[in-house]
Amino acid sequence: MSARADTLQTLLRDARLWQGDRQAPLRAEATGHARLDALLPGGGWPCAALSEIVYARPGVGELRLAMPLVARLTQARRKLALIAPPHLPYAPAWRRHGVALAQLSIIEPKTEQDALWAAEALLRARAGAVLLWQDAIDTTAQRRLQLAAETGDSIALVYRCLSGHAPNSVAALRLRVERVGGDSCVEVLKCRGARPLQTCAFA
C-alpha cells in the first residue's frame, strides 16, 4: 500500500506530468492590468516566449494593453523595438504613459521578410521586448520568433489585425482585444498552463 503511495508521489513530482488544476510554474512579466494578471498563468506576459494580440480594427486599445510593460521595461533601461508599426508612435503620449523614449527603437522595413529578420535579430540580441506588427504571420515564422525569444530571453509580442476567426497559432499566449460599449475588453484565447476563454475589461 505504502509502496503504491510512494510511486504516486514520485509520479506527481515529475515535472513532465501536467496537472489540470494546478498552474505550471511560468516566468512572466506583469501586464500592469490587475484583472488580466489574475487570469494569466504566471501573472503576466510569459518571458522568453511569443505572445500574440489579435484585434479586429486599430484603435480598440490594443496598444494600451502593452503600455505598462513597455513603460516598466524602458524605465529599467531595457531596450525595446517596434517593428513595422502601422502608424507613428506619438512621442508625447508615449511619454505620458511613462515610456523612456531613449530606449525605444522604431524599425520600418519595406518587406515582411525584412521585418521578421529584424525581429529575430533583435530578440536574439537580448531585447527587453520586441513588438511586431504583422497580420499574416505564418507558423514557421512564429516558431522562429519563439526560438529567438528563448535564446535572447526576450518577450516577443506580435500584433495581428484580423477580422473574423483567428487562425491557429503557436504563441504561448493569445489575447483578443475588443471595444465593448466604450470599454476595452480582453479575451484570453489561449494560454500555456491554464484554462483559456476568459474575458475581462481593462482601463
Binding site: L88, A91, L101, A102, L104, S105, I106, E108, K110
Partner: peptide, 9 residues
C-alpha cells in the same frame, strides 16, 4: 532612415 527613435518636440 528605417531605424529611428522618437522624441517629443
Amino acid at each position: 532612415t528605417a531605424v529611428w527613435t522618437p522624441a517629443p518636440h
